[in-house]
Amino acid sequence: MFKMNIKYIVLMFFSYIFALVQGGNLPYRIFHGLLLTFLISLLYILFKPKNIIVQLKFNKAVYCTGDNHEFTTIIKNYGIIPAPYVVLKNKTLAKISPKYIGDAVWLGIDESKWLKTIVRFNSRGIYNFGEINLSISDLFSVFERSKSMNLSFPVKVYPKIYELDKFLIKGSDIFKNAVSSKTTIEDLYSTKDIRKYYQGDNLKRVNWKVSAKHGELYVRDLDTVSGEESNLFLDMSKDNFFNDNNEMIEEQLIDLCVSVVNYMELKGIKVKLFINASIERRFEIDSRDDFGELMEFFITHKSDSEKSFAKFLNSNSTKIPKLSWLGIICIGVSKELKDILIVLKDRGYNITVFYCASELNDLSNLDILKRVGIDCCSFNEIVNKKESRVRK
């Protein structure tokens, strides 16, 4: 794109009119000087952009949400004439950081500049940092020429996988108990220990001899074996993030989901994940390759479902045998979702709710679920934010 300084053109035009009317050497010398500057600037702007080269430098091409990293842009002048005013703007950086407005540099003969910017990846996705707009002006600012460049520099940002730090609810491991209690067939498990009974434990696991001896209920703590299955439901409803301008809540939800799935896959528990998206998706994660496919899905899909999560959960639960364990991953619990979960609990399902909103205005629905024996735990309760890992 080509731009001319209109004020300069008007000045040159009036200098020409003044020379014609006034006559004499001085008016014409003024006009000729302006005209010569115009021609030199025109030749400069036509050929100079070919001598300006841009390169990009990232230490790696894969990141996680929440990562901070230094991004370097190298701009070099290979010409024998200085470039007095060069403005470089990275389109992707402008989208990520509202404060970024570009960089203006002076480039001497055969000089290069390294422009460093700290990038924080708040949202997952594929970012092409090669989309650059370059503007070059001549020394007199008569002309400005812009060109768009695409250096094809893609960077993938995956959801962050947190180490699960606190999975103890009332002294019991919710995964161990939830998955262990999904069936009444005791042959699938081996007794690990004896512990006190906690509200929500399966009464079929009560050790009556030990309970009678101590005067209170004790249950068998069971180890699950490889090959067990779990059922997770993820709410990717669009309405959940209506006011989530920075996408922070949505990213926390997806981080929670992949952290839970990663934990269970590493424990040898097969995961069936039902996703309430615009096009309903179902993943079966039984290996690291399966988990990798799930991660690829999340970097290209945002929350876009217009269907009620409660209705989605109710319809899909019919495909799952009763007494199975259901893990619900959501922002918070609405009245409609609370009612459905209570119905599913009455049908015999063992349920754990994972919610990620750190500040909820209404916690009453969660309190009701806890009173009926449904475990509820928040993102901040179960993750260790000091340490994280990504295994693919």
Rank of each mutant, 00 (worst) to 15 (best):
M1P: 05
V10P: 03
F13L: 15
F14M: 08
F14V: 14
S15G: 09
L20S: 08
Q22S: 14
G23C: 08
G23Q: 11
L26S: 07
Y28K: 07
H32V: 15
G33M: 15
G33S: 15
L39Y: 14
I40F: 14
S41Y: 02
K48G: 00
P49W: 06
F58S: 13
N59W: 13
V62N: 13
Y63D: 03
N68A: 06
N68F: 12
I75H: 02
I75G: 01
K76S: 11
G79E: 05
A83T: 12
Y85M: 07
Y85H: 14
V86H: 02
V87N: 12
V87K: 13
V87P: 00
T92S: 07
A94D: 11
A94M: 14
G102F: 08
L107V: 09
I109L: 11
E111D: 14
K113R: 15
K113S: 12
W114R: 14
T117D: 09
R120V: 11
G130F: 08
G130N: 09
I132Q: 03
S137C: 08
L139C: 12
E144Y: 00
S148Y: 13
M149P: 00
L151D: 13
S152M: 05
P154K: 05
K156V: 14
V157L: 04
P159T: 11
L164D: 05
K166L: 12
I169F: 09
I169M: 05
V179K: 00
S180L: 06
S181Y: 06
T183S: 15
T183K: 06
E186M: 10
D187I: 07
K192Y: 06
K192P: 02
Y198M: 12
Y198W: 04
Y198R: 12
G200Y: 04
G200E: 03
L203M: 11
L203A: 10
W208L: 10
K209I: 07
H214Q: 13
G215D: 04
E216Y: 07
L217Q: 06
Y218W: 12
E228I: 09
E228N: 15
E229N: 14
N231E: 12
L232K: 01
F233L: 11
L234T: 02
K238R: 15
D239M: 13
E250G: 00
I254Q: 01
V261A: 08
M264D: 03
E265K: 10
K270T: 09
V271N: 02
I275C: 10
N276L: 11
N276S: 12
A277I: 03
A277T: 10
R282S: 05
F283V: 07
I285L: 10
D286M: 13
F309N: 02
F309E: 03
A310M: 04
S315V: 13
N316H: 15
W325K: 02
C330N: 04
K338C: 03
I340Y: 00
L341D: 00
L341Q: 00
V343A: 10
V343S: 09
L344R: 01
L344H: 01
I351M: 08
F354D: 01
L360T: 06
L360Y: 04
S364H: 05
L366E: 09
K370C: 13
V372D: 13
I374P: 01
S378G: 13
F379I: 02
N380M: 07
E381T: 12
I382T: 04
N384V: 06
K386P: 00
K386I: 10
K386C: 03
E387D: 11
E387Q: 08
E387N: 07
S388R: 06
V390E: 07
R391L: 14
